[in-house]
Nucleic acid binder design. Sequence first.
DNA 1: AACGAACTGGAGGGAGGATCTCCGGTTACG
DNA 2: CGTAACCGGAGATCCTCCCTCCAGTTCGTT
Lengths: 219, 219
Amino acid sequence: MSSPVARPLRADAERNRQRLLVAAQELFRSRGLDVSMDDIAAHAGVGVGTAYRRFRSRDELIDALFEERMGEVVDMVEQGAADPDPWRGLVTMLEQTLAMQATDRGLKHLFHSREHSRRRVKEIRDQILDTMQGMVDRAHADGTLRPDVTLMDITVVNLMVGAVADLTADEDPTAWRRALALAVDGLRARPGTGPLPSEAISREQFEAALECWRPPAPR
Amino acid sequence: MSSPVARPLRADAERNRQRLLVAAQELFRSRGLDVSMDDIAAHAGVGVGTAYRRFRSRDELIDALFEERMGEVVDMVEQGAADPDPWRGLVTMLEQTLAMQATDRGLKHLFHSREHSRRRVKEIRDQILDTMQGMVDRAHADGTLRPDVTLMDITVVNLMVGAVADLTADEDPTAWRRALALAVDGLRARPGTGPLPSEAISREQFEAALECWRPPAPR
DNA sequence: AACGAACTGGAGGGAGGATCTCCGGTTACG
DNA sequence: CGTAACCGGAGATCCTCCCTCCAGTTCGTT
């Protein structure tokens, strides 16, 4: 049996733990999860040894930071799903999740990796997709969403606008909004738009594609 | 003065040179330009030493392979510009250049790096953008292109559909066509579409953004 | 068929970068 | 004030990539 009461850390140790968490948070946000422990420790103004003493590995640090935050994304999606106007719900959902991606590459990275999906990410992603499927169905019934657009097309839009967000983040953090506006106009049902070419990608294909996303090269 | 007549390579040497070129071509296409000489040599069934004997550096190999191919991209764009219907020209131009990106990550990589733009890439890119500006102007005059869409928006569409092409290339090599169809519908002029949010990105910002593109992580 | 020049493969040295350990010195706190 | 807890960061280990070097092989010429 493990010790029932873990003695609290000494004051300096706890302070350093916090510093490490803050530093990791900042670096993960701006650069994605591929940040070395050396970088994190340096950014926290602490030795690497200290970093490894508090967090056995980078994964443990990631868990400590992101466990709760993943829920935020679920909330964004469900908030959109709760909108009585399905079209507006869909659009605000895209806006919200993209705003997240634009400001937190770490969280984005987490959702895109199968690496960390050994934990809860997979289930959360499935849950989100189920909710989104409902939104798509209602927007179809409503007649506002182009009928030949599928759930996977929505995720592809998310992916492609997300790419704009990634690449332009350091130059113009709002540039993705224009790209989203264009894409959203493409999603809207309208007379005279022919059927979409090719087939919609399958869910498995999409998961596989997600997996190899990497944050843009730092400059 | 350099030797006026370079003696031809011995038969085996020439054979290996060809093998290296083919191997490099294949790897660059499928993985982008970040392929090690070790990989190329191995893929050619040849020692690394041989690779370095024939090509002083990877850059030399890249030059040998891509010098002429860059012209193809210019042709694609100019072919679109020559279309009497400006809208159709714009769309086919996007299709062509994206089809290229979907099948040749090396060429894509070359166009996106400032690294290699010390050579001709920069001028070629400028030339392409000038031609495209003309297309955009004519499509505006024609009334088919949404009036608030700028040249840079077109390049952003290219970038974002290109991201889809990148990430889905191994799963479904045609998936990008659907994404392009959606985006193109968003570009079309239509009554009732409000002004686009945010500002169009500047050319300098776009160049900077391009630079940090990386091919997706291999699986 | 035999010889010298041209060529080959791949071991290995050097550079860089990440992970993780170890220990002499420092600090908190009962 | 003593000691258990904690600290920093040098450096061991393991990658991967670049590039060189040379003993051994192959070509093509005589």
